[in-house]
């Protein structure tokens, strides 16, 4: 009986990006003696958690054929609001965090409403709303961090459970829910149908605008969750939270096989992509790469990862 060595992978569109991630992980472990230490792996996992949450949110929107450039800013604003609620207004910390996540959902609702009802292009619209939300952040904080976040909620950002950072575990839960909904429920199938062909989905009787609106709401809530977790991580509500959560999640999703045109990809692939970026950011420091070379080095690794993904997919297809 002739068995094809990679036959088990051929069924999965994630094979290429997973192999790219595995290769980068293995090379990093071989080259740096520090890479595989439990401390370093927890550093990578903790960093991945925050960008990972935004990546999950962005990949859900990208499957619909939408892009939301305000997600990082929503995270920052909601983080600051949670800080204001619990420090300045003295609200119960967990209630403050929940209210901030609810605000994130409302900001997502605003984006979704303007996209679906006024038929505005999500990419262009969210450039504008990112400015509004970011501006509100500055007005509220005047650029100064809110300190005095209660110690007990800091566990959500700094704590560990069986050696795994709490925010990483929260990200995994969000990933599991998003994946289940997108791959195993009618709602998820509607998302892919809309992303593939919006007009066709309408003709099939799918309530297209309702689905799009709901995904924007969920994406806003997930972004806010990332923001409040980062507040718990830092122990302060920094106005700059989310500033670097704009392009990396989109790049991660694309590396992970999510098409910007919609209808293709999954949050798991996007998280693999985010994992590649997180490892690159880590090894650049472990290897002591000059800050002036970091852009080139990380860019080259990303190009190599994408190329490896494309080549391995071709190989797997031929092998099948």
């Amino acid at each position: 009986m002739h068995t094809k060595p990679l036959a088990f992978l051929t069924r999965s569109p994630l094979a290429g990006v997973f192999l790219a991630l595995a290769v980068i992980f293995t090379l990093s472990a071989l080259i740096s003696p520090y890479f595989l230490t439990p401390y370093n792996l927890s550093v990578i996992a903790r960093g991945l958690a925050f960008v990972g949450l935004i990546t999950i949110a962005q990949s859900m929107l990208m499957v619909l054929g939408e892009l939301d450039l305000s997600l990082g800013v929503i995270g920052g604003l909601c983080g600051v609001i949670s800080g204001i609620l619990m420090v300045r207004l003295g609200l119960e910390p967990y209630t403050s965090m929940l209210l901030a996540i609810l605000l994130g959902a409302c900001l997502g609702l605003l984006n979704g409403f303007l996209v679906t009802v006024l038929r505005l292009h999500s990419l262009v619209l969210t450039i504008g709303t990112a400015g509004i939300f970011g501006g509100a952040n500055l007005v509220l904080t005047r650029g100064v961090a809110i300190t005095g976040i209660p110690k007990d909620v800091q566990y959500l950002g700094r704590g560990d459970v069986i050696g795994l950072p709490v925010p990483f575990l929260i990200m995994l839960v969000a990933l599991a829910i998003a994946t289940f909904v997108m791959l195993k429920t009618p709602f998820g199938r509607y998302m892919y149908a809309i992303g593939n062909n919006q007009a066709g989905a309408r003709m099939l009787g799918i309530k297209v605008d309702r689905v799009r609106l709901l995904v924007f709401v969920v994406a806003g809530a997930i972004a806010a969750l990332a923001g409040v977790l980062m507040v718990a991580r830092l122990g302060t509500a920094q106005p700059s939270i989310g500033d670097t959560w704009v392009l990396a999640p989109i790049a991660a999703a694309v590396i992970g096989g999510v098409a910007t045109t919609g209808g293709i990809g999954s949050p798991i692939g996007a998280i693999f992509g985010a994992g590649i970026i997180a490892i690159i950011e880590n090894i650049i420091v472990l290897f002591g790469v000059s800050p002036y070379w970091q852009g080139i080095v990380s860019g080259v690794i990303v190009v190599l990862a994408i190329s490896f993904d494309a080549i391995s997919r071709r190989y797997i297809r031929r092998d099948a």
Partner: peptide, 22 residues
Amino acid sequence: YSAPQSADVVQQNQIIDSALAT
């Protein structure tokens, strides 16, 4: 010498944490 690409405390902490691993 390892510098954040932008003046962002999150990015700076990520560099510090990775540096500690070495």
